[in-house]
């Protein structure tokens, strides 16, 4: 049922999309990795992407071990960052391409003896790929303020608030990630929000 929804959104996205890649399927696998750390779905993603990444990397790195490292690093970033993929912002292929290009870029810089400084994610953000950030500008100060208030919460509540608002994980994802019952996540979030309201309310009113 969800598949229909997905394919509608994805196929309407752009003229560049071909039928040769099953985009809705890729999105669904990424989604399963993000939401339920689904190893089977990851294996499917791996089987689809890894051989292609390896081939592309072989073109950029003469050294076999380095090409393998690109595959390993790209795919493990996919595993660890799947929750940052936003299907409304673009195709799964575009997102994985960004992850791969960034891994490659940082590795080339390292190999060429420039520096080991991992600049790629600042140049090509993986979280919100090329989105217009201008509207966020005014909020940075408020964010900093908010962050300092969050830092004062008990650790257990901090984890939930940060996961939910900063990493934009769902309550279900958080429950899996923190290994807690869903009810506990919900009640911690409620408690934390109550405290935040009191603290921020004082300053905002």
């Amino acid at each position: 049922m969800q598949t229909n929804l997905l394919s509608k959104e994805t196929s309407a996205k752009s003229t560049h999309m071909s039928d040769k890649i099953n985009h809705p399927q890729l999105c669904q696998w990424l989604d399963s990795v993000a939401h339920s750390r689904d190893k089977q779905a990851f294996t499917h993603l791996f089987q689809f992407f890894a051989p292609k990444i390896l081939r592309i990397a072989r073109g950029k790195f003469p050294n076999e071990a380095q090409a393998n490292e690109v595959v390993q690093d790209t795919m493990s970033n996919v595993w660890r960052k799947a929750h940052l993929f936003n299907k409304d912002k673009g195709a799964a292929t575009t997102w994985v391409y960004t992850v791969m290009r960034n891994v490659t870029f940082d590795m080339l810089r390292k190999i060429q003896g420039n520096k080991e400084d991992n600049l790629s994610d600042d140049i090509w953000p993986v979280a919100e790929s090329m989105s217009c950030e201008t509207e966020g500008f005014d909020d940075h100060l408020a964010d900093k303020n908010l962050l300092s208030v969050i830092e004062n919460l008990p650790q257990a509540q901090q984890d939930v608030v940060k996961g939910f608002y900063l990493r934009e994980m769902s309550q279900e994802q958080l429950a899996v990630h923190l290994n807690l019952p869903l009810g506990t996540v919900k009640s911690r979030l409620r408690l934390a929000l109550g405290k935040l309201k009191v603290q921020l309310g004082e300053k905002h009113d």
């Binding site: 560049h16 592309i56 673009g90 195709a91 994985v96 391409y97 960004t98």
Partner: peptide, 8 residues
């Protein structure tokens, strides 16, 4: 980017 990704 989308096009390059698709081709890749």
């Amino acid at each position: 980017t989308e096009q390059v990704a698709e081709n890749s």
